[in-house]
Structures are given as structure tokens and as C-alpha cells.
Design a protein around this nucleic acid. Sequence first.
DNA 1: ATGGTAGTAAATGTCTGACATTTAGACAAG
DNA 2: CTTGTCTAAATGTCAGACATTTACTACCAT
Lengths: 239, 239
Amino acid sequence: MTLETLPRHKGGADELARLLARALLAGHWQPGDIFPKEMDIGTHFDVSRNQVRNALTRLTAAGLLDRTAGRGTHVREMSDWHLLDPLMSEWMTGLTDLDPQLTRAIYAFRFSAEPVVAGLAAEAADSNDIARLEAAFEGMQKTARSPAARAQHAEYDVMFHDAAYQASHNLVWRQMGHLLRPSIMALVHGSQHRTDTFDDSLSRHRRVLEAIMRRDAEAASRAAREVLRRTAIDLGIVN
Amino acid sequence: MTLETLPRHKGGADELARLLARALLAGHWQPGDIFPKEMDIGTHFDVSRNQVRNALTRLTAAGLLDRTAGRGTHVREMSDWHLLDPLMSEWMTGLTDLDPQLTRAIYAFRFSAEPVVAGLAAEAADSNDIARLEAAFEGMQKTARSPAARAQHAEYDVMFHDAAYQASHNLVWRQMGHLLRPSIMALVHGSQHRTDTFDDSLSRHRRVLEAIMRRDAEAASRAAREVLRRTAIDLGIVN
DNA sequence: ATGGTAGTAAATGTCTGACATTTAGACAAG
DNA sequence: CTTGTCTAAATGTCAGACATTTACTACCAT
């Protein structure tokens, strides 16, 4: 794989890093492949070597690349990628052709984790958290019936789940809210969006919200599992 | 807080980053404080500005610092720290005076997450995973009775739990194994280490191992909770 | 032939000094 | 009191030289 197909960019090192990261996340290079050398990247995008190095430093920090003096830059195994790095989520968002293996892994994680999170949220949520959950839910309701508002609906969906992670009031769980965006967004493109599906999803989300509000951890946990269950079946995570 | 108390170092930017990170993790600066400027750090440690910038770049990527041109470098809120970044775990290991709030948060996370992980492990573990779990358990057994082998015992403890995360065969859960080391190590210093405590802990670990081996997810989940329960009570996470 | 060894090219890592950009604060004009 | 401008100080960027590491090759000795 060469750089030829990648578009030139406008911004600084951030933009460059994003560009390269997304190409990697889409699978344009195989694990073990050698990555283009600094100079080539620099000349192709017409930026200084510094910019390239800054960008590559970020990708290396995210576990995407492995650099050694004299050897060059190599692409690491997917299992070495730091999926929990917030930068990664940022790079993944809006990527329609995310590696299916990755989508599946993230969703499987959510399917096992979010029941726990919902349970914790029911125990620890304060009025702020409840307000955020309600606002997100209302947004989902408003945008459920209009096919034009699909993207907006997904945003509210992300907001709802993120609010649940926040409501757990645990520093570690809170960080994982970042994982949601790419996972939810990737699925928006892969499902049929029939109206009754939306209604169904909406009522399941409602049950989570209500359980958290009445501080019923057990019910919140069950309800959260139901929210994710249908898609989990579709993806073959559970049967 | 100034740099004066920090020892000079030997290695490159990695070492410098580690040094500064550990000072931050121990709470030597408060959130919002301004961090020493590049030049001062450079002259104090007698390294080039490049080295300093490389080090600070890492701390920034880990969410510890916030840098803006003209404004300077500031320390971020603890809730912004990327606790899931593997570098963070590396920096935390061996830090005896880790912020108690952090220890507690990480342990609370483990207490809620590891039952799920153990359940997944029971479903997905292959012979390799089982072998790793057995090896770790045997190591724990061998080192349980000798007070001199305390550090070694902790290592096997880490290995055991990490093997469980690995056995889940989920890319996301696997990454979280990194969180264990600092959490377990910090607790080694905080407990009494009576021999019967070790025996008790050992038999609880054994139950997890056995449940995973006979693929009983439900039992593995319950057993994992029991492993963590006593300490969770001590830390006030559950009553 | 085979194995070790020196040499060479190519890639990333580091240093240095100059310059650009951003920000906060001081100060004066309206 | 507000607005605009200037200045100092900090981080950001650049370019070029040099250092270090690595893989490869050619060569020589056994």
C-alpha cells in the first residue's frame, strides 16, 4: 500500500495523524507491513519532517506503529492497538469502513459491560446524571421517526449511553464512554432503520432510564442487556 | 511545587517522562497548577529542549497535562487522566504512594468488572489460557508461605488476573489487563499479610480456576467476586 | 562452500538555533 | 468602563547537521 491514494490535507500534525490513522484503521496496511518512511510522507504531503514525526509519534503512542532506528516503521498487530485511547475513538468516528472484526469486538465488550455499568449507575446517579439521561432520551424520541434525522438520532444515542457511563461515578468506567461513539456510528450504517425498530429500541432505552431513576440496579442491568441484545444476535455475539 | 526535590536521571526522554509522571501521580502538583516551563526543566535536568518536549508530549498524550502556546503547561483534573493508557500503568508500578483515591477507583472497577471477565473466560478460554492460569496459580501457591517472596507472590497474582482477562478473548477486555499491576501492587503495601489471609485468598483463586476449567461461567463469575470481596470491604467499596 | 568480519547505505533518533504563533497583562485613548 | 495596541513570555514549527541503529553486501580466511 502506498500513499498515492490518500488525499492531501489542510491542517497541522493533528490532521495528518488522523488521516494516516484512519487509513490504518480501515485496514489499508496489513500487520507487519512496513509503513512509508518519514521523508516520503513529508514530500507527499508537503510538510516538514517535524510534522511527520509528530504525527507518527501519536500513532506510535496509540500502539498502531512500531518504529526502530535503522529498521523503519512497521504496522503492529491489531491486538496491540490501544483501543481505549481516546484519540483512537476520535479517529474512528465517522469511519464507515471500520474493520468488521473491530466493530464486533467493541460491541461484544459493550454487551458484557453495559449491564454492569447500568447497575452501577442506578446506585450512584445524581440529579445531574438523571437530567443528562432524560435529555438524551428525549432527543432520541424526537428524532426517531424522521429518516432525515438519522445522524442526529445516533448522536443522542451516544449521549444516552455515555451518560450512563458517567453516572457510574467511577473514574475508570467513565473513560470508557469514549468507546461508544465509533461503535454506535458504525452500526448506523449497517442496519435497516425500519420505524418499528426505532420504536422498539426506544422503549428498551426507556426501561433503562426508568430503572436508574428508581435506583433499581437489578432491573437496570437487565434492561441494558435488552437494549443491546438484538444487535448482539445480528452480529453473532450471542444466540 | 518546584523541581528541586526531583533527582537527576540517567536515561533519555522515556526516563524523564517517567520521572515527571510519577511526581504527578503521587500528587506533587494540584490540578490547575502550572507546570514548570520547558526551559527550566531542561536546565534543571541538563537535557536538550527536545528531550523535554518529547517527555511532555507523552504526559500530554496521557491526559496528565494541558499545553497551550503562550499560556504554558497546566496540570489536568484527575478525571481527565487516561488511566487506561498502558504507559500510565507502567508509570504507576512500584509507586508506593499512589493517590488513594486512584487506588480505590481502580479497585472498584475491578470489583465490578472481573466477575464479568471471569464469566467470559469460562466460555472462551483455550488450552493456552488454562495453562497460563495454572502456572500463575502454582506460582502463587509456592510463594504464599514465605514472607520473603512477597513481591514474587504479587507478580503471580498479577499474572493470574491478567491471564483471566486474556482468556476472555476480547480485544477490549484484554487491554485492561494493564490496569491490574498498579492496583495489586499498591495493595501489597497496605495489608497485613497474615498467613491465613494468604491461604484464604489462595483457595478463592482456586475456585475461579476450577470454574473456568469446567466452563461454568456462572460459578466463575461468583468466585471472581469472592476473590475481590474482602478487600472491597476493607476499602469501603461495598459493605 | 561456509562462516565471520568489515564496510556501506538507509532509516529513525537527537541536537541546535532561529523564527512563528498564541496568550496574558499593561497601558493608553476613546 | 470599554476597546485597542503593544510587549513579554511561553509553546509551536522549521531546517539542517549529526548520531545511532539496522540490514545488507562483499570479502577474506578457513
